[in-house]
Design a protein around this nucleic acid. Structure first.
Lengths: 262, 262
DNA sequence: CGATAATTTGATGTGGCTCAACCTACGTGG
DNA sequence: CCACGTAGGTTGAGCCACATCAAATTATCG
């Protein structure tokens, strides 16, 4: 059940069957959005939140000159704007990057969960805080890393995030972003992103091409990026399978990562 | 009651008397910390959260070379690490900047609130999301603004935040940070912050000196900073008093801002 | 097959960093 | 009350990472 996928892979743990059923039932509707479409505009009052089944979405702020800074990238299994429920309106825009299939969760249903299911409510709260933890790491990335490290860091993050929900095998994953998108994520120009990607390729660290990423040397890439995945709050076994042991490496035989089907 | 001060000034609104009492009772203890002290280390499991009565605290991440990036500044009335309750451990360090007086809130008490007071729980959730909204704005600031605009933006933000809790009159406030701190906030070096502050002073926009800020031209400063305070989710009347009307200016006579006493 | 978006490369400009020195305010002990 | 140490602030010179501007090349897709 994809709706439980992110939580399952986190230190918080997945949902109990009854909570899972309640959450699944809270999705009133499914929708499909075209690529590159704005879905929610900053400031507009919303009475539903969005769950992403398939595709890539982004959350962003535009400056006065029209330059865009992404503040988050959403991938399958994410609640895109769960925070809209307590906040009532958003401080940023939400849009699709690729085409996307989403579920609609009316805030009335979340209110009911809040009243009747404190444990489920706490897990939803946790998910919004996971988001905040990622924001903090983006602040660090932009404030303290140089261009090459920023891009490398974002790729490490995305690899880990996608791995957690079974969309990366830990070394290769689809990432249908343009270099322009990467620039808007990393606070750079697309021209410089292009040169940075060349450097990462030439140094044998990773290749970003045709909407897919190949990581050739995970450890070296993580080191260059100063990447430390604590902030993703992954479950221990996920961290271990990703090759970032919590403690001295512990060569337990293990199953394959979860697959992509719902 | 300072514990209600931030919420009162927000679009979310303050607490009902009984919720307020429950929240006040959830503080088990008070503590005083010395200046420049680390309080919570990243990764360490915590079973309490902290409410800031007095002083300034910071949350930060250090890079491999020891360079520090602040991810948040906490001022009186803030819950410093309420997010530690759902997260269980933090992904960043927490420390004091000035000396600080805080209240300690055991997570057991928050669990009880979660079970028994869904409305209060939702307001606490709101507060953690306010934090996330500020993180997003910091991402924007670091990703898309130049040095002068970054510093100006931070000063606008701090002015508005402090104004909301009665610690700024809208044009002047105490801010006992060093230029080094400002650098760690804005992703710059302290040398460059020094030059930026000079420029802001010489352009007649604002003066940062001796731990206090004077804003000489609020509108021009906000314009330079591309500052838009929507993300602070302030109540309408607070926005109006701050001189950022929501709609065409509406010259309603109004009381003074709330004072500083508890 | 032509149009359009995305990527790549080069040349040049500049904002902010680095390194280094000096200055000022303040607290502490003699 | 002065001498000194230390933390913070100020200024200058030179450099480098990244931006900007411009053009060419390569997908991608009706």
């Amino acid at each position: 059940m994809i709706i439980n996928r992110v939580l399952e892979s986190r230190s918080e743990g997945g949902l109990e069957p009854d909570d899972l059923a309640v959450l699944a039932d809270s999705i009133s509707d499914q929708k499909v959005y075209a690529p590159r479409t704005m879905i929610v505009k900053a400031g507009q009052t919303v009475n539903f939140s969005t769950f992403l089944y398939e595709g890539i979405m982004s959350r962003y702020v535009d400056d006065r000159a029209g330059q865009r800074q992404l503040v988050a990238i959403q991938t399958p299994g994410d609640f895109v704007d769960l925070h809209a429920y307590p906040l009532k309106h958003l401080d940023h825009d939400v849009g699709t990057i690729t085409g996307a299939r989403v579920g609609i969760i009316p805030h009335d249903n979340l209110r009911r969960i809040q009243r009747e299911r404190p444990e489920l409510a706490r897990k939803l709260w946790f998910l919004t805080l996971l988001d905040a933890a990622m924001h903090r790491t983006w602040v660090f990335r932009l404030g303290r890393l140089k261009a090459v490290a920023r891009v490398a860091h974002f790729l490490c993050e995305t690899n880990a995030k996608l791995f957690a929900v079974g969309h990366s095998d830990g070394e290769r994953f689809n990432l249908p972003l343009t270099q322009f998108d990467l620039a808007e994520i990393c606070g750079l120009t697309s021209v410089h992103v292009n040169r940075v990607l060349r450097e990462l390729r030439e140094r044998g660290l990773c290749t970003f091409r045709a909407g897919a990423v190949d990581i050739h040397n995970r450890m070296a890439l993580a080191k260059l990026a100063e990447f430390d995945l604590d902030y993703l709050y992954l479950a221990e076994d996920v961290q271990r399978r990703l090759g970032f042991p919590m403690a001295p490496v512990d060569p337990v035989p293990e199953g394959p990562p979860p697959d992509d089907r719902e």
